[in-house]
Nucleic acid binder design. Sequence first.
DNA 1: GTCGCAACTTAGACTTATTCTAAGTACAGA
DNA 2: TCTGTACTTAGAATAAGTCTAAGTTGCGAC
Lengths: 133, 133
Amino acid sequence: MTSHIEELLTTHGVKPTAQRAVIAEYLVGTDCHPTADEVFQAVSSKLPVSLSRATVYNTLNALVEAGVIKEVFTDPGRVRYDANVTEHHHFVDVKTGQVYDIDAQKVSQLKLDLAPEFSVNSYHVTIFGEVKK
Amino acid sequence: MTSHIEELLTTHGVKPTAQRAVIAEYLVGTDCHPTADEVFQAVSSKLPVSLSRATVYNTLNALVEAGVIKEVFTDPGRVRYDANVTEHHHFVDVKTGQVYDIDAQKVSQLKLDLAPEFSVNSYHVTIFGEVKK
DNA sequence: GTCGCAACTTAGACTTATTCTAAGTACAGA
DNA sequence: TCTGTACTTAGAATAAGTCTAAGTTGCGAC
């Protein structure tokens, strides 16, 4: 039986192994933006064999490369990962560091007035503020 | 004689020492967005005494705290520093990693349609693309 | 002036995130 | 079954940044 996750990997050209499947599954199933270490913690118990950090990093890099997930740079000194690859932006709670996805529709279209030598591929908005309880 | 830089530090509540002055001077005088290590390389020869990396980091953190410079997170795994504290955004050349300042006026005002519990302080736009030669 | 103290700086050890390496494992195809 | 390539592993290596303990500096009180 080919699971949904294995299909996701295969269609992106990533050979589905047990390690890659549980890592991808964890990422797809969470709204958080976990760090590599959080992925490692969450996933290692779900495998019958011991998991190496190197595999977590290799897999995360492979998934980014393949476009299955994205890297998020909001913190200094650590990369977070996001399986939401639809167009969206991020809201960072400056008190807690929590990152929330903000749908691209909630942010007005940007108009850029740049010199002609700047050729734009995409842009990303990071919003800083606080989430009130 | 109180230099421009010493004044800048003093008015922001940072006691001006020789180390802090050359670091701040370097940052103010460059358009690049140097990393801590680039600051260290550039500045250490300008002091009559040997400079410690710890001092570079202490100073950079103190300057950020005081609002004299800002941190820029565009790369994974390293913080860059920016002495341009006017409102502006960043253009990242995806080929070279170079970061260019984009004046806030060149970017249209954003309208955000967020749930009421999201209280916005500020936002920052990172534009990805290429600078054509 | 000089004493004492707080703030600053230093070298180097330490921590944390990530990558590298070398060896072992798994599995697809001949 | 054999072989080769791709994957995974443990642990060493690297890199960015922080911490620590000891040494300096310089200013205010006397």
